[in-house]
Write a protein that binds this DNA or RNA. Structure first.
Lengths: 337, 337
DNA sequence: AAAATTTGCGCAATCGTTTGTGCAGCCATA
DNA sequence: TATGGCTGCACAAACGATTGCGCAAATTTT
């Protein structure tokens, strides 16, 4: 009922000016010890808490980071956001959330609202169909820095953090080679995706390291739909060379591929092995988990992206010193194998 | 570089007062058509956007909801938050996020920060070890309404939304009975949990409906640890009556129980059947998914809780008309069975 | 034509906090 | 004793928008 106490109130009760009270609370050296203690005592007594909205307004700073990402309920993103929130909180920043649901229009709207809320900075993972980046360009005018993570735009001067699939892929293929597999299929994603190209590069590198020839007909691009996976599987299983192992684009693809193999009467881990890229939690609970997974460290990506953003905000990093950080992915063996 | 345009700037350029510009932009009837159009035209040209922080400050309203929950990366919560965000966004509210990591101290700190950020309202799912509710009581002084969801405190005058496990449990047990099972074990949670008691009640009700006797020795409370589950399983499997079906507290418990059963040489869905409460995504990918799951509708819980909060904020609901909404859980058959 | 009403706009306060500046009184140094 | 430098505080502006009130001019009513 009674409004929260303000600096003015404290000032009135102590016959001081608001400025003195403010300085006293901030331990300004020019305020005498006596008054300082008086003020602080009364502040405690009244349970004074500064009105942040006033401070935000006055300082043109909100200590708030905006996060825009496609879908919270995807395990990858909820892990990333967890890293973001933890890192932000350590620096007393709060986190404002918006999901685009992979819709570019919604994304644009959210970015607009966040801009109006005057977030200090933005962390963004793009919606699938975002092709127009005007709403991000606009943020420069408002001096709101953006750090992209995971799904990054095809732009020049941006900060970003992303996982590099190449390293993990090299390790994955190397593992399979080491286990004696010689004909390894890869169910890849759309060729325009950086992530797909990185997988291809990783595949080639691993083969070269063993002085083996890279066979492009074993690396199939798909649209990542269930049907696409099944078609790719069909092609691979009818390949003139006998495919004994498969690298799947992600766990969902892997599951569909496994299912197709089962339908064809193949025995998993005997006739054919699977390696995937981790994006399902608890893959240990899966019926036929891949024997290994390339981990993309979503939590760490969130952490790093936030750390960069905070460094920019604190002035440690100049705005135009574009940070482009790739986190190496890494092969992780399935538990219990 | 140039600061975003303000109302004052527009006023200066048109030789008007700030108040006139403000009213013109809001289509105030007392502003002449000519000036109104002039103002709006210039605003568009300068790409004027109101400074929300100023408005927040002035109106003592931030159009922001705070969310405090234990762990973002848990599927249940990320689904809930998705519902919250969607609902909030429809009313042009933003969502400020904080995870307690199931730590009461952290929860308290987050609530404090959110209060200082002057969120309009709070949505809270409690940390496990929260016993002191002082930080929530304090919010009343600040007139910040709170709606709890799922993990609700043991307090009198609060708003909350929670799933009632009873209905789903009745259905689960009824299903097992219908399939001919007569000795049904239940691996329950700590007895002090409301959710555990609801499961017990549901179990009893289902038995009574078939005029069967309820056997308390088949309903075992556990601490929900892996070891607790295994001990319960041991007790159940050595029960004097032959247990042919088990209701597990949740999917994690279910998995552990299944594993134990397998170790004992039992065949799942033949020697023994499992029913659980859904909290793992993609349970269809699990090795031995429960044949059915009690769905708790996290997304809907989030929606409903947010709707209540928004109604309170808009004045549609009086603060002290305490909404206590329970969403009935419901049994969902596993896909493909 | 005088009175009443409406129209169109400006003035000024307000929200709570921070911060540059000014001004006493005090002490110390020359 | 005059000069200078501290010390301790108050004054006032500023951030950007909203809003009650007032006042003149234009319009309508009587």
């Amino acid at each position: 009922m009674p409004n929260p106490p303000t600096i003015k109130e404290i000032a009135r009760k102590l016959n001081l000016s608001a400025s003195t009270v403010s300085r006293a609370l901030h331990n300004h050296p020019r305020i005498g010890l006596k008054t300082r203690l008086q003020v602080q005592a009364l502040a405690r007594e009244l349970q004074y808490e500064p009105n942040q909205t006033a401070i935000f307004f006055q300082q043109k700073k909100t200590f708030t980071l905006g996060i825009v990402l496609p879908e919270l309920s995807e395990a990858f993103f909820s892990a990333a956001i967890s890293g973001i929130e933890d890192t932000a909180n350590k620096s007393n920043y709060m986190v404002l959330l918006g999901q685009s649901h992979d819709d570019a229009t919604r994304e644009e709207k959210i970015v607009g609202i966040m801009k109006n809320h005057r977030v200090d900075g933005l962390l963004v993972s793009l919606a699938k169909n975002t092709v127009n980046y005007a709403h991000f360009e606009m943020l420069r005018k408002y001096n709101i820095p953006v750090v992209f993570f995971d799904r990054i735009p095809d732009m020049q001067h941006i900060h970003y953090v992303a996982a590099n699939m190449e390293s993990g892929t090299v390790q994955a293929v190397a593992l399979l080679l080491q286990q004696g597999h010689r004909v390894i299929g890869m169910i890849n994603g759309p060729e325009k995706l950086i992530a797909s190209r990185q997988r291809t590069t990783g595949y080639r590198t691993a083969m070269q390291q063993q002085r083996l020839k890279y066979d492009a007909t074993l690396n199939l691009p798909t649209d990542l739909t269930r049907e696409g996976t099944r078609q790719a599987m069909q092609q691979l299983l009818s390949h003139k060379r006998k495919v004994t192992a498969i690298v799947a684009f992600n766990d969902y693809v892997s599951q569909d591929a496994v299912q197709y193999a089962l339908e064809q009467g193949l025995q998993i881990n005997k006739d054919i092995c699977f390696v995937s890229y981790a994006n399902l939690p608890l893959s240990s609970y899966m019926a036929f988990p891949p024997m290994a997974s390339v981990e993309q460290y979503p939590y760490q990506q969130g952490q790093q992206a936030t750390a960069i953003l905070l460094d920019i905000l604190s002035g440690k990093l100049p705005q135009d010193d574009y940070q482009q950080l790739t986190i190496d992915s890494r092969l992780v063996m399935a538990p219990g194998r």
